[in-house]
Amino acid sequence: MLKKHKILIIEDELELAKSTVSSLKENGFLPFHAKNLKTAKKFLRQERFTAVLLDLGLPDGDGISLIKEIKSTEIEIGLIIVSAKDVLEKKVQALELGADDYLTKPFFFSELNARLKSVIRRFNLEDNQQLTINEITLFPEEMRTLIHGKIVDLTGKEFGLLLYFFSNPNRVISKTTLGEFMTSSYVDYGFTDDLVYTHIKNLKKKITNSGGDDYIKNVYGVGYKFTVS
């Protein structure tokens, strides 16, 4: 069993923080919650975190001020900004200061899981090389897929979907969430459901044709679940 990654959630909205904590717990993380900058700083001194989720609008100051502090530690900490401010300059500023990703509220937990795991892979070499669930192995860097040791030819979108499912095992992911993920939020509504359906159908077919189990289950027509026992 791998040691659990400690994640610090800096968020002043208590309800949102509670949901985030339970969602991260379910996904195998060890989350901590700080409701303001002061508590966050205390936590950062006491614990060694793998990643930090930082809200920008905090009661005792702008989260931007904490970015440098988090990024100047000896061991690299992954940093994802989670903000309601969908302002281009803010994003640019945060990323320039060293943030690894920027997520706009409201976000989906599946999206958060996927981004978080991607950031963690970047900084933790032991997780970097490959991801394995039973007979399926993914190499995120090279975008390569092996099933029973044999290479499976997946398109970029299919690989992205599979990686997304890998980051969210046993989680119901709604069609809306998958649609947003697949279109990088560029497309507002209209045809994402069909898009999701087609790609998942193709992905399922490629996995089962290569001798893999049918992991991707349809949940009442509202979403999908990557079931791993």
């Binding site: 309800e15 949102l16 949901s19 985030t20 309601a84 969908d86 302002v87 509220k105 409201p106």
Partner: peptide
Amino acid sequence: TENVSHELQTPLAIISSKADELMQ
């Protein structure tokens, strides 16, 4: 405008997160 965005998006984020949580 920034504040309006923030004030509206945050409650939406809470609704969305609760629905997502319930779905599991």
